[in-house]
Structure formats: structure tokens, C-alpha cells
Design a protein around this nucleic acid. Structure first.
Lengths: 197, 197
DNA sequence: TCATAAGCGGACCCCGGGTCCGTATTCTAG
DNA sequence: CTAGAATACGGACCCGGGGTCCGCTTATGA
């Protein structure tokens, strides 16, 4: 395949934009008061450059998000328990949800910016489908649970960026409290199946 | 309190706008390709009128949403079982979630428009807090469940408009299937407490 | 009927995402 | 090293949508 390597300045600019956007997003109160022009300016670059490199706003945010998310993905795909693939579902499901929660807590504005993108919802983001499939498959291995597809969606909905933001921001729930609440919630759901004693 | 009654034409126009917006939203593919100008035009009214009557876009959508939601609220507050207040929590919780799901199914675009409003999320909509409080209180009466506040959030997240839209639209899950999946999910969660046999 | 306040409408402003194209930079072949 | 093509740059520019403003119209009630 003729995958031509990009020019050096292009690569440098891309990196600069990514870096600038990153700090801007983490510093700002709401993701949508950081504009494309702001980012371009902060990166010392023209708007055109920015759009050529990432296509559009969603593309840029998506790239940032992907970069931040990469460690988590690696930990899930090839890491040690309890996140790695060798873990039995009963421990891995809560571990995954906890990891996702932590990620959203650590990248509030970014996740918010990505999920709140137009009416698109998070449901057409490439990542979402991956997490959903993974979670669904794990749930499927657990006997006696209801429709795994829906359950996976519902569990993922419990760690949606705006909910997390609301809890952390409005309700001032501290990080560890939120983690344990989520763990309890997950546990309650997973405890369900063994009912016919 | 000096609550002056509005002029007749004002009332008429308000109603016209509401009606026009309603049909526009239900007909259109995505909630954000119906603009304020469209609504004004469809209602045969100037933009100014529209903004004076509802403040801003969110206000208008909120008003529409509230109107549509009113029957549900009444059913919950003063209706017969299984939605009404006389129902024991174990039946009322699933009934409430089911009612909410049906509502979102029947008002997809509207709910989508309201929940997807900026980064505001649904969590600052007045209605949300009501549902959350109600659900939390019901959960509280059930022994052995984890933190009711979080659980209420998580359960409500399972019927969020964009998830419902995704399931109905992208995954083509039929209405009744979705209802039963939600019911199963809810049941699994509620079944949890009685574990120490 | 007339005075006054409430309401009306649509031209207008603002601002942000996205585009365009003349110019500058990098790459590559000779 | 150099010339030419290919690629990238940047910021002026466009467009569309939310929200405002103010001179004019219409309801109201004395």
C-alpha cells in the first residue's frame, strides 16, 4: 500500500496542535468555549493547517481522545489482570468499568467534548463499539444474565462522561466514593443470576 | 403575586409556535437541522416573537418537552398502579423506567434535542432532578441495595434519549424487545439484595 | 375613543466552523 | 547542488444559525 510518509513540518505541526489543544481543553471550564481558532493560535499555526491535519473539530478531538485512551486499551488487550484478557469475566467486568470511570475522571473535558458532539452521541464513536463488544462478550459468558447487548449498553451508560462530570462537579462526589459506588452498582447487577437456589 | 395575564395574541402565537415546532421536530431527521428561523416561519411569526415567548432555544424545547411529559408526570404522581404512588417500590421502579423508555421512544427527536443541548447535559434539566429524586427514594426503601443516589443515576442513564435513539435507529431493536430488555435489566439489578439466604 | 402598554417582525449583529488559494517549504530526481 | 513538482501553510473569507433591537402595530381598559 502506498502509505506515503508525511512531511516533517506537517508532523511537527500536528504534534504542536495536539499539545496545544490538550492543555486548552484541560484548562478550560467548558469544552465548547475553546474554539478552533483558539487552538490554532495556541499552536502557532493557521486554521487551515489545523483542518487539513484533522478534518474537522470531531477529528481533532477524536485524535486527542484516542491518544489519551491508548494506555487503557493496551492494558485491556494485553495487560495483566484484573484488566487483561486472562481475567475471568466476574472480575474483569468491574475492572473494566472502573478503568473507564477513572479515565473519564482524568480526562473530563476531553471526554465531555467528544461525547457531547452534536446529536452524534458517543454511540457512533469508534471506541464505543469496541468497548461495547468487549463488555457484551464478557457478560455473555456469565450465565443467567439478561440480554447482554442491552446490559452492556446500560452499564457503559453508567460511566458516561456527562454523568461523571455531573457527579464530580455538581454533586462534589469524591473520586474514591464514586469508584466504590460504581463497584457496588456493578456488583449488584452481577450478583443477580444465581437466584434459583 | 402580580401575575398579569398575557395578551390574547401573545397566547395564540405561543400556541402556534409550540404546534409548529412540534411537527417540525417530529418530522425532521435530526433535531438540529430544524432552526429557530424554520420554526418561526412555520408558525407564521417573526423570530423576535419566538424568542420573547421562550427566551432561547432551550426554553422553547423545554416547553415542548414539558407539555409532552405532563401526562406521564400526572400518571406518576396521582395515577393508578403500577405507576402511581400507591405501588410498592419493587413494582414501581420497573414501571417508572418502562414509562420513561416509552416516552423517549414516542418523543425521540424532542428528547434528543433537549438532552443533547450544548454541554449542559440532561443533568441540569429541571425534570431530571425530579425523576432522580423519586427513583432514589424508591430504591432507598429496598433493603440491601448499594448507594441509591448513584444507582438512580445509573438506571436513568439506561433510558437516555441518545441510547434509545441508537438502539431504535441504528440497531433496529423493536419497541417491545427494548422494553423487555430494559425490564430484564432492571429486574436483574433489583433481584440482587436478597443474597444471604 | 384615545392613551398606553404589551407585543410584533425581520433586518441586523456576532461568532464559530469550515473553505480557498496565493505563497512558502520540503522532497526527489538528475 | 539545483530545479521542479508535490505538499503544506496561513489567514482572509464565506456561511449559517442563535440571539438582539427598535420602529411599528394591536390589544386593553378607562
Amino acid at each position: 500500500m502506498p502509505e506515503r510518509k508525511p512531511r516533517k513540518d506537517a508532523a511537527r505541526n500536528r504534534a504542536a496542535v495536539l499539545a496545544a489543544a490538550d492543555t486548552l481543553f484541560t484548562d478550560c471550564a467548558s469544552p465548547d468555549d475553546v474554539t478552533m481558532a483558539d487552538i490554532a493560535a495556541a499552536a502557532g499555526v493557521g486554521k487551515g493547517t489545523l483542518f487539513r491535519a484533522f478534518g474537522d473539530r470531531v477529528g481533532l478531538i477524536g485524535a486527542l481522545y484516542a491518544a489519551r485512551l491508548e494506555p487503557v486499551e493496551e492494558a485491556v488487550e494485553t495487560g495483566p489482570p484484573p484488566l487483561g484478557p486472562a481475567t475471568p469475566p466476574l472480575q474483569r467486568v468491574p475492572a473494566l468499568l472502573d478503568a473507564l470511570l477513572c479515565f473519564k475522571l482524568d480526562n473530563r473535558h476531553l471526554a465531555l467534548a467528544l461525547e457531547g458532539t452534536g446529536s452524534g452521541s458517543p454511540y457512533q464513536a469508534a471506541h464505543y463499539e469496541r468497548w461495547h463488544a468487549l463488555l457484551r462478550d464478557m457478560l455473555e459468558q456469565l450465565p443467567g444474565l439478561p440480554d447482554s447487548g442491552f446490559a452492556a449498553h446500560a452499564l457503559l451508560a453508567a460511566v458516561r462522561a456527562d454523568l461523571v462530570e455531573h457527579l464530580a462537579g455538581e454533586e462534589r462526589v469524591p473520586r474514591e466514593a464514586m469508584r466504590s459506588q460504581l463497584a457496588d452498582y456493578t456488583a449488584a447487577f452481577l450478583r443477580a443470576p444465581r437466584d434459583p437456589e
